[in-house]
C-alpha cells in the first residue's frame, strides 16, 4: 500500500513538472495575444521559431552533454569563432578574380565553407572534451577558460572587424520552402527529433544518462565513460557548427562577438526545461520546451511593447522559479 502511494505521488509530480512548462507557455501566448493580437499571427509564430532555431540546435548538444553531467559554456564563443572562419572563407572565395581558370574555386566556395565549418566544429568539440577529461577539473571552469580562449582567437583572427557574406549564402538562414517554411526551422525540428531518438532509443543515450546519474556506477558497469563523454563533446561541436552556419547565413555578417549570448541562453533553456544541472535527468522534449519558452519571452516583450531590456530580468526570474520548483518536487519524494 505504501509503495502504491509513493508511485501515485511520483507520477502526479512528474505530470506537474512538464505540464507546468506547457501551462506557462500557453499562458504567455494568451497574455501576449490579448495585449497585442499580432502576436498570434502565423507569421509571428514562424518568426519566433526561426529566431529560436539556432538556440535550439545549440541547446540540443549542450543538453545531451548536461545529461551526462558535463557543462559546456564555451559554446557561444565556439559558434562565434566558427562564424568568423566561415565568413572569411566565403569572402575570400568570392574575391577570387573571376577568370575562367579559377571559376571552379568560386563555385566550390560554399560547399567548402560548409565542410570546413563542420570539420572545425568537430575539432573544437574534440579539443574541448580532451581538455575537460584530461585536466580532471570541473567542466564549468575548464569551458569558462576555453570560452575565453576561443573568443580571443576569434578576435585575433578577425582583428575585431566584421566579415560580410555579400548575400552569397542565404539558404540556411533565410531560405524558405513550401511557401514560407524557413529552412532553419526544418533543421531545428530535425535536430530535436534526432536528439529524441538518441536519448530514448540508443545505447549511447542510455550511457549518457547513466554517466550523469552516477559516473562511478557507470564505470564499474563497464561503460567507457571517457569515450562516451568525448562523443558528447564532439556532438556539441558539430551542432555548434550547424548553428554557426545558420546564424551567419541569417545575419549576413560575422563578428567575433556575434554568438556570445548563446552560452548562457542555451544553459538557461535546458535548465528551465528540467534537465538536471547535475546530470542524469531530462529529455529532448524538456530541451525543446525550455528553448521555446526562452524564445517566447523575448518576442512577447517586444510585441507587448515592454522595454526589451527587461528580457534578461524575465529570463533570470524564470530560471530561478523553475529550478526552485524542480528542487522542491525532488525533495518531496
Amino acid at each position: 500500500m505504501n509503495m502504491d502511494m509513493t508511485r501515485k505521488k511520483k507520477s502526479s509530480l512528474k505530470l506537474n513538472q512538464s505540464l507546468l512548462l506547457v501551462f506557462v507557455i500557453f499562458g504567455l501566448i494568451i497574455i501576449a495575444s490579448i495585449v497585442n493580437p499580432r502576436f498570434i499571427r502565423i507569421s509571428n509564430l514562424v518568426n519566433i521559431l526561426q529566431q529560436i532555431s539556432v538556440l535550439g540546435i545549440i541547446a540540443c548538444g549542450v543538453g545531451m552533454l548536461l545529461i551526462a553531467g558535463q557543462i559546456d559554456i564555451s559554446v557561444g564563443a565556439q559558434v562565434s569563432l566558427m562564424g568568423i572562419l566561415m565568413a572569411m572563407i566565403i569572402e575570400r572565395g568570392f574575391k577570387i578574380p573571376p577568370d575562367a581558370a579559377n571559376a571552379w574555386m568560386t563555385a566550390w566556395t560554399i560547399p567548402f565553407a560548409i565542410l570546413a565549418t563542420l570539420v572545425i566544429g568537430a575539432f573544437l568539440g574534440l579539443f574541448t572534451g580532451f581538455i575537460v577529461i584530461h585536466s580532471r577539473a570541473s567542466s564549468f571552469i575548464v569551458t569558462l577558460a576555453l570560452g575565453s580562449v576561443y573568443k580571443g582567437l576569434a578576435l585575433l583572427i578577425s582583428k575585431g572587424s566584421s566579415f560580410s557574406l555579400y548575400g552569397k549564402f542565404e539558404l540556411l538562414g533565410r531560405g524558405q520552402i513550401f511557401n514560407g517554411l524557413p529552412v532553419s526551422i526544418i533543421f531545428f525540428v530535425l535536430i530535436v527529433a534526432l536528439t529524441y531518438v538518441l536519448l530514448k532509443y540508443t545505447r549511447y543515450g542510455r550511457f549518457l544518462y547513466s554517466i550523469g546519474g552516477n559516473r562511478k556506477a557507470a564505470f564499474v558497469s563497464g561503460i567507457n565513460t571517457t569515450r562516451v563523454t568525448m562523443r558528447g563533446f564532439i556532438s556539441v561541436g558539430l551542432l555548434n557548427a550547424l548553428a554557426a552556419l545558420i546564424l551567419i547565413s541569417r545575419v549576413g555578417t560575422a563578428l567575433a562577438t556575434t554568438a556570445d549570448a548563446y552560452s548562457l541562453d542555451a544553459l538557461a533553456a535546458i535548465v528551465v526545461g528540467g534537465v538536471s544541472i547535475t546530470g542524469g535527468k531530462g529529455t529532448a522534449m524538456s530541451i525543446f520546451l525550455g528553448v521555446l519558452l526562452i524564445g517566447l519571452v523575448g518576442n512577447a516583450l517586444v510585441v507587448m511593447n515592454i522595454n526589451p531590456y527587461l528580457r534578461g530580468v524575465a529570463i533570470g526570474t524564470i530560471i530561478i522559479i523553475s529550478v526552485t520548483f524542480g528542487e522542491m518536487s525532488e525533495n518531496k519524494r
Binding site: S210, N214, K216, F219, V220
Partner: peptide, 12 residues
Amino acid sequence: DSGLVLVHSVKD
C-alpha cells in the same frame, strides 16, 4: 556510491 544509478528505474 558505485553500484546503482539511484535516480534511474529498476529497469534501466
